[in-house]
Design a protein around this nucleic acid. Structure first.
Length: 210
DNA sequence: CCCTGATTCGC
DNA sequence: GCGAATCAGG
């Protein structure tokens, strides 16, 4: 693959949108994120609006001496090149709506735990957080969940990725709270065990309908 | 471990 | 110019 005008254009657009190099590479296809990053640099459009963690010092490692002396730090692109609106809102790592697990199949997702239960104002006491009522979960699934939760990765909200189980465990109102973190099942937000309790066949949960 | 971008350097 | 390898960091 080569950098055709069109591909470069896509690259520029996505980079400007705050997409990560890997996402751009995936979109373009035929290139790795390294290729994308390399191109980004060659195009001179590196730092995306002062959000860059700012590289302290690209080192210097004893100036190779001799050769020539390029301007130390010609960082004069701020004024004019400030095309993008200064007050960068929020690049947001992944602009994905988060979960959104399709599963239009004959199963009903039981969103027992609100993964984004930010304001979980739980009156400390008898928490009784997420965990769906055990009485409507298959014994096997329940058992494996208990088992899995013993070996959970115990990730924090910030540590979650597209491939870590986002099942919350514990009481959000206390420090005794974390996310499963085990490898998710393809296309699902949870690991195998938690998918088992989160997604139930309609028939399974219909039998106890009032 | 997963991921990010940055840099280097042979091609 | 290109991008794999590598680095540095989260």
């Amino acid at each position: 693959m080569s950098w055709t005008d069109e591909r470069v254009e896509t690259l520029k657009r996505m980079w400007a949108e705050g997409q990560s190099a890997s996402q751009i590479a995936k979109e373009l296809g035929g290139v790795t994120r390294n290729a994308v990053i390399g191109k980004v640099h060659r195009l001179g459009l590196s730092n995306r609006a002062g959000a860059a963690p700012a590289r302290p010092a690209p080192e210097a490692a004893a100036a190779p001496a001799a050769k020539d002396k390029p301007a130390p730090k010609p960082e004069a692109e701020q004024p004019a090149a400030a095309a993008a609106p200064a007050p960068r809102p929020e690049p947001a790592p992944a602009s994905r709506p988060a979960v959104a697990s399709p599963a239009p199949e004959a199963q009903s997702a039981a969103p027992p735990p609100p993964p984004s239960s930010r304001k979980a104002i739980v009156p400390a006491g008898q928490p009784l957080p997420p965990q769906p009522s055990a009485n409507e979960i298959s014994p096997e699934a329940l058992a494996s969940v208990r088992e899995v939760e013993k070996t959970a990765k115990r990730l924090t909200l910030m540590e979650l990725t597209e491939r870590t189980c986002k099942w919350p465990i514990g009481d959000p109102a206390t420090d005794d709270f974390w996310f499963c973190g085990l490898p998710v099942q393809q296309g699902k937000p949870y690991c195998e065990a938690h998918v088992g309790v989160a997604f139930q066949p309609m028939s399974a949960r219909r039998d106890r309908k009032r």
